[in-house]
Each structure stands twice: as C-alpha cells, then as structure tokens.
Simulated scan of single mutants.
Amino acid sequence: MTIQIFCDFDGTITETDNIVAIMKEFGPPQTEDIKNKVLSQDLSIRDGVSQMFQLLSTELKHDIIHFLQQKARIRAGFKEFIAFTQRYDLEFYVISGGMDFFVHPLLETSVSQEQIYCNATDFSGSHIRIDWVHACDKACENDCGLCKPSLLRRLGKKNALKIIIGDSITDLQAAKQADLVFARDFLLTKCNELEIPCIPFETFYDIQDYLLQRLGVQHETILERVE
C-alpha cells in the first residue's frame, strides 16, 4: 500500500508556531485580535494571516529570519522520522501555511524543496505581502490561504493511505479528508469535539512507533534515537 504523509510545519515540525512567535515579537497589538478571530473561525485563515503580515514592515525581513533561526526548535524525532520515511519509501510532504522566507531555511538540511508546499512572500513594497500560490480549488470554500485539502486532492494518489500530521486550525479541513490523523494541541481539541478519529502525539518518535506497528515491522533498531 502506498502511504502518503502530509505534515504541517508551524507548531508541528517546530515546537512552537512561528507565525505566532513572529507576531508576538514584531507585530503591533492588533495582531492578537486578528489571531483570535482566525482561531474562532470568525475570520478566514487567508484574510487573517494577510492582515497580520501587512502590519509588518519589509525592513524587518532579516531580523525575522535571524529571530527564528535563534528561537525555532525542531520537534524531537523529526530527523529520524525523515530517515524512516526514506527507508520505507513513504511519500512525505510538508504542507505549511508558513512563509517561504523562513520555512525553507529551517528545513534545508532535512527536506528537499520539492517536498515543501508553503506560501510565497513579496517584499517589494513597504509592508510584507503574501502570495497565495496554493489557494483553494473549486471544491473548497473555506478561503484557507494555503489550502491543505486542495493539496491532498492534487497530490493524493488513488487507494493511497493519506496521513495528516498537524496541530492547528489550518489542519482541520485536511484532517476531515485524511485516512489517519496525528494531532496535538488545538487540532486535537477540535478533532475530539467533532469526533474526527485521531491519534495524539508529542514527538515524531510517537508517530514513527505507531507506523512501524502499522507496517508490521518489529524491533526496529536501525534508526537510533537521539535524546
């Protein structure tokens, strides 16, 4: 069976949400209200994220990159999980509502650019503008910005087992379409509320262990765990 894994970036691959961290560090006070409206689904993800970044000067670009390179932490087990997907020929994609100017640098040593789907950013004006290069298809009316369910339809293969790994509201619509969901934080809460079957996780070791059992592989010793 073909297994396709679609993994969120902010708050999933990284321990914390980078957009939230950026707004706390560089955003004006009104970004908090915009964020809360997105989480309550009173404002679409596309509109909310666009509004927040439009409040940031393009002159902050290098400061933001430096800030994230210093502060962002990759979740435990991710490097080993990528090696695991390669060993067992599992298709792995990063589908991120984050921005290219920080997603690619933070993943450049572990995931190829061809595996990453995220938003593009335009720094040509006075304030940061987002190019929504992976917008909703005709089957989605949620104004997702980067539309994860649309990417599942575009990249998904017939009869493949499609797995979603995520943590937030941006992963919810894709979770509704997936065959298997690994969830934490806000996504876990929403899945439980909506009775979407999911498996809680804290590290990528948790996900790897489950999939090893699913694949029928016993006593895995090839991938050494580094604490």
Rank of each mutant, 00 (worst) to 15 (best):
R214M: 10
Q208V: 03
S150R: 09
A175I: 01
I128N: 08
L212T: 01
Y88E: 08
L212Y: 10
L215G: 06
Q30K: 14
E195Q: 15
R153H: 14
L188C: 01
M1F: 10
D63P: 00
T2K: 14
D209C: 03
L155E: 08
K35W: 06
F182C: 04
L194A: 07
V111Q: 09
Q70P: 00
W132M: 08
R153G: 08
I34L: 14
G11H: 04
S150P: 04
E224G: 02
A183G: 12
T2F: 00
I34A: 03
Y210C: 06
F101L: 10
D17I: 03
V217Y: 04
V133T: 14
A76Q: 15
P28K: 12
I82R: 15
M1V: 11
S50A: 13
G145Q: 05
A72L: 05
S112V: 10
T121I: 07
A183P: 01
K158A: 10
D171T: 09
Q4D: 00
F9A: 08
P105E: 12
P200H: 07
G156A: 09
Q115C: 10
Y205L: 03
K37P: 00
A174Y: 07
A72F: 01
T14A: 03
Q213D: 13
F92I: 10
A76S: 13
V217E: 07
F78I: 07
T85Q: 11
D42F: 01
T31E: 10
M99F: 00
A175H: 02
I22Q: 05
A139H: 15
N18F: 00
D89S: 15
L56G: 11
Q70M: 12
Y205I: 02
S96C: 10
P149K: 12
V133M: 06
T109D: 14
C191D: 09
L172P: 00
S110H: 12
D122R: 07
Y93K: 13
L56A: 12
R75K: 14
D47A: 15
L172I: 05
D209F: 00
N36A: 11
E25G: 00
G166Q: 02
I34S: 04
L151P: 01
V49I: 15
K35E: 07
S168T: 09
V217D: 05
E59A: 14
T109E: 14
Q113W: 00
L55M: 13
R153M: 11
I74E: 08
D89V: 06
R184L: 05
L155W: 15
R225T: 05
L39M: 14
E193G: 01
D17L: 05
F182Y: 13
D171V: 04
R154N: 11
S112F: 00
L194R: 09
E80I: 09
Q4T: 01
T221H: 14
F53D: 12
F9N: 10
E220S: 08
Q4G: 02
L223P: 03
A120I: 01
H104M: 11
E227W: 06
L146S: 03
I163Q: 02
D185C: 02
S124T: 15
Q177D: 13
Q86D: 13
L60T: 10
A175T: 03
P200S: 12
T85P: 08
I128H: 09
I128C: 12
Y210M: 04
F81K: 07
P28V: 06
L152D: 08
T12D: 09
A76T: 11
L194D: 13
I5Q: 00
D131N: 15
P105F: 12
